[in-house]
Write a protein that binds this DNA or RNA. Structure first.
Length: 937
RNA sequence: GCCCGGGUGGUGGAACUGGUAGACACGCAGGACUUAAAAUCCUGUGCCUGUAGAGGGCGUGCGGGUUCAAUUCCCGCCCCGGGUACCA
């Protein structure tokens, strides 16, 4: 065989493994570089061609950095806890650890075949107790810390207790659960009613231990709280906000409802501002940063107190438009608002109760679909506008959310589209206070214009009016400027089996964490993976799921993002059993220089992970406050589905071109039965039993299929398996082709046809090193100027392209180079050896093979990247495009050392020019050296 | 609705800071080698027109603008993909 890729690739994969070629160790003599791929979840279906795209890109970059003298950390491991293995366990009884172990083996096998340069000695699995020990450890640290808003960092809870003992909590500015004192008071009436939550040192000392712990819980960064959560009955668990889309679970698409439950939370909201600010310092795509910004959702505004007329109550409202306060014509509170029923007048009370009841009992699904339906009820009560004393009616409506701001708003229909809809629907007044719109048609929401009908801010521009009103309400002591975030604390409990157990037990109802020396708390065995009859999570089935003192352990487990939040740090020192990672390893590897993965993790993993890291930074563990310096989202590889056209209600199929003449239904057919859009009709009949007697209406003797570009998925029968391609073309060709397909970040359809071109290239490249008899042969002859020019042009391009992650154009430049060298059949070592290094990150197996044949005894992976030499590509002439009025008409070779006057003269003298000048004298001649000559007539 | 990203031949794509639009491939057509096929190699290939191995016109989603020159910059619009959705 001319090019025996099977043998070559097996040989070098074995060599790399046996020689630990890619083992990364701390080496102060070389600069470090850290390249990371997003943690894969080892699913049962294995990899399709879309999965390795990012891995190939990162591997190429890794190998490139090694060639440039960097000590590269490039690890791989598995996000091994997760729902699919557990769902499978429920169905079949197979332990998730068994399923996961099997899937990991399959993944590893597939990854190995592609020839990645991972340091496998650093492999981690989140389900391994030696790994999750540190996930549990971090949880304990979070539990034992609070967030000090004054210093803007996490501090030990013991320090907080010390302050409580000395001066109470009056001076503390902490990130804590809002209105926590109300919840505590509800549960424990020994706290004063209407307590504002402030206590003195003496009061603190007088609290029972249980009371103290209840209070501290509201300060901890990992805390237990009762809250409305996303409950998914089909999965039997609670889900985080990013795991829910449109009222359904992202994984599996099961309906999700709102439920009040006691859960563990992580106080990520404490870090909202830092998570936002950090985005300015990292190199992520603009769209990803924007997604994170929206998810964090900072809004600047003011909180204002509106007294409720004739009562001692007041409505606290949040608004981003304090400037429009004179246009507030009604107030709206959320149905869950505590004052809703209290302030309602007797005649309105039953209507209000009925409305609240109706709204509450709706499913999340109904709520979502009814979003555009305006509904609400008047409470009968009025607020007093604190700036002009006017009465404003108070309504209850579900378009105001209890969970955001204060759950109450001042409605300004003239300048808020939602308020406008509401006002129109219920016939409430609309008062224009910012000029610039036409409020008879729609609200004018823009934050620009001049204030009118607004007392002391009349004539001001919006920005100035906002500031003025905030200053005024602060002076009057009826409100203050305020920043709100949309980001919610992360729900950290899952009522599932296959996850990290919480290192938590309950002593007399008080949640306590284990001592760090007792970690890991190993996941116990259970008889079945289902919840108990009483609805408790599967861990409640475990025998002796209690501490040595007999206190019960927490029965929830941690969510998927727990194990993946800090994994990049563990890779630095993965076998350390007495600390998360050593200080030395962290100070050497620092953080990830290049992170490649899908954008679907924008609001999940990538936010949690940044939060987790900032916490570890605060407590002095991580030396960098951002985990990922640069991130690239690889685009999706879409499938190219093949479609056949079935005559309705029959087993006859009509070819693509004739389908319009019949009444047909479309059907996806397995792409493996189709070649160049021609269906293999015999294979089709054998595909499924019901198709055995299929008949075909052909065109020109063939059945032609239609096609559709869509998601690559099993159900659409368009999955391309990399194993098959490697079998037919080899891993080097697969690697090159995945890169050649198009820009890394763009989505693009997979089309197997194109792989032939790359396969041709790689054989042509190999042929440069072989003679006609297919024997390895290179000559020691001095290279010609032309050959050196080809080589150095390619060195330059290869480096520039890889530096900007333009792998597709780099592959093209190799093709051009090999085409140009093939013409004179260059076989000179001085050209081929550097070229071999250039290609090696992309096609490492063949490069190693040729490198060895060239007489090298050590792996090509640490060879020096060829140095570009300008001299070899220098030109003394340039072929100028000559344009007339901007249209290119002819080309002209000119020496580069001519003056612009000489150039102008020569151009005008050129024979071709006469034709275009048509006797005119040019008005102007533009001459841009090494670019263009343009003659304006 | 709002926020991002994107629209270039039959197809994937290239053109990096405004300077020869369509590199490199696929596909297609023709040719060489071969009994034949595969493999390999050569030639052509944006569209229209044409005296067809000359020449010309049009052309980067659409309509304008700036410029000697626009795929690239500006304004307005259309379409596709992603995110988000009563967040005040």
């Amino acid at each position: 065989m001319e090019y025996n890729f099977r043998e070559i690739e097996k040989k070098w994969q074995k060599y790399w493994l046996e020689n630990r070629t890619f083992k990364a160790e701390i080496d102060y003599s070389r600069p470090k570089y850290y390249v990371l791929d997003m943690f894969p979840y080892p699913s049962g279906t294995g990899l399709h061609v879309g999965h390795p795209l990012g891995y190939i890109a990162s591997d190429i970059y890794t190998r490139y950095k090694r060639l440039n003298g960097f000590n590269v950390l490039h690890p791989m491991g598995y996000d091994a806890f997760g729902l699919p293995a557990e769902q499978f366990a429920i169905q079949t009884g197979t332990h998730p650890a068994v399923t996961t172990g099997k899937n990991i083996l399959r993944y590893r096998e597939q990854l190995d075949k592609i020839g990645f340069s991972f340091d496998w000695d650093r492999e981690v699995k989140t389900s391994d107790p030696a790994y999750y020990k540190w996930t549990q450890w971090t949880f304990i640290r979070l539990f034992k810390h609070w967030y000090n808003n004054k210093t803007q960092k996490a501090e030990p809870i013991d320090d907080l207790i010390r302050i409580f003992l000395k001066e109470g909590n009056g001076t503390i500015d902490a990130a804590c659960t809002s209105e926590w004192q109300k919840d505590i008071q509800k549960k424990d009436p020994s706290f004063p009613e209407k307590w504002n939550g402030i206590f003195t040192a003496d009061q603190w000392k007088s609290f029972t231990e249980k009371q103290q712990q209840e209070i501290l819980m509201n300060y901890r960064l990992a805390y237990l709280s009762e809250a409305m959560v996303n409950w998914c009955p089909d999965l039997g668990t609670v889900l985080a906000n990013d795991e829910v889309a449109n009222g359904f679970s992202v994984r599996g698409g099961h309906p999700v409802e709102r439920k009040l439950m006691r859960q563990w939370f992580l106080r990520i909201t404490a870090y909202a501002q830092r998570l936002l600010d950090g985005l300015e310092t990292i190199d992520f795509s603009e769209s990803l940063k924007e997604m994170q910004r929206n998810w964090i959702g900072r809004s600047d505004g003011a909180e204002v107190v509106f007294p409720v007329k004739g009562t001692n109550f007041a409505l606290d409202i949040f608004t981003t438009r304090p400037d429009t306060i004179f246009g507030a014509t009604f107030m709206v509170i959320a149905p869950e608002h505590e004052l809703a029923e209290i302030i309602a007048t007797d005649d309105r009370l039953s209507a209000i109760k009925e409305y609240i009841d109706r709204v509450k009992n709706r499913s999340e699904r109904e709520r979502m679909t009814e979003v555009k339906k305006v509904s609400g009820e008047f409470t009968g009560a009025y607020c007093i506008n604190p700036l002009n004393g006017k009465d404003i009616p108070i309504w209850v409506a579900d378009y105001v959310l209890a969970g955001y701001g204060t759950g109450a708003i001042m409605a300004v229909p003239a300048h808020d589209s939602r308020d406008y809809e509401f006002a129109k629907h219920f016939g409430l007044p609309i008062v224009e206070v910012v000029s610039g719109g036409n409020i008879s048609e729609s609200s004018y929401d823009a934050k620009e214009g001049t204030l009118i009908n607004s007392d002391f801010i009349n004539g001001m521009e919006v920005q100035q009016a906002v500031k003025t009103v905030i200053r005024r309400i602060e002076e009057m002591n009826i409100g203050k400027g305020k920043v709100n975030y949309r980001l919610r604390d992360a729900i950290f409990s899952r009522q599932r089996y296959w996850g990290e157990p919480f290192p938590v037990y309950f002593r007399d109802g008080i949640a306590c964490v284990l001592d760090e020396s007792e970690l890991p708390l190993v996941l116990p065995e259970v008889d079945t993976f289902l919840p108990t009859e009483t609805g408790d999570p599967p861990l409640a089935r475990a025998k002796n799921w209690v501490t040595s003192e007999g206190y019960p352990y927490e029965t929830s487990t941690m969510p998927g993002f727990a194990g993946s939040s800090g994994y990049y740090l563990r890779y630095m020192d993965p076998r350390n059993d007495h600390e998360y990672f050593s200080k030395e390893s962290n100070e050497y590897w620092q953080n990830v220089d290049l992170y490649i993965g899908g954008s679907e993790h924008a609001t999940g993993h990538l936010i949690y992970s940044r939060f987790w890291n900032k916490f570890l930074f605060d407590i002095g563990l991580a030396c960098k406050d951002e985990p990922y310096r640069k991130l690239i989202n690889q685009g999706m590889i879409q499938g190219r589905s093949s479609i056949v056209y079935r005559l309705k209600g029959s087993n006859r199929f009509v070819s693509y071109g004739l389908r319009d003449q019949f009444d047909i239904t479309e059907m996806h057919v397995d792409v493996n039965l189709v070649k160049d859009d021609v269906l293999d009709t015999d294979a089709f009949k054998k595909w499924r039993p019901d198709l055995a007697d299929a008949e075909f209406i052909l065109e020109e003797g063939n059945y032609i299929c239609g096609f559709e570009v869509e998601k690559m998925s099993k159900s659409l029968h368009n999955v391309i398996n990399p194993d098959d391609l490697i079998e037919n073309y080899g891993a080097d060709t697969l690697r090159l082709y995945e890169m050649f397909l198009g820009p890394l970040e763009q989505s693009k359809p997979w089309d197997t046809k194109g792989i032939e071109g790359v396969f041709r290239f790689i054989r042509k490249f190999r042929r440069l090193f072989h003679n006609h008899e297919n024997e390895f042969f290179v000559s020691e002859e001095e290279p010609s100027a032309a050959e050196l020019k080809i080589l150095h042009k390619t060195i330059k391009k290869a480096r520039e392209d890889i530096e900007r992650f333009s792998f597709n154009t780099a592959v093209s430049s190799f093709m051009i180079c090999v085409n140009e060298l093939s013409d004179p059949k260059c076989c000179k070592r001085a050209i081929l050896e550097p070229l071999c290094i250039l290609v090696s990150p992309y096609a490492p197996h063949l490069a190693e093979e040729l490198w060895e044949k060239l007489g090298n005894t050590v792996s090509i992976s640490n060879a020096p990247f060829p140095v570009f030499n300008e001299e070899f590509v220098a030109e003394d002439t340039f072929r100028y495009p000559v344009s007339f009025n901007g249209k290119m008409r002819f080309q002209l070779d000119l020496s580069l050392d001519l003056s612009s006057d000489e150039v102008e003269k020569l151009v005008l003298q050129a024979e071709e020019s006469q034709k275009w000048l048509k006797g005119n004298t040019p008005k102007k001649i533009i001459y841009v050296p090494k670019k263009i000559i343009n003659i304006v007539i």
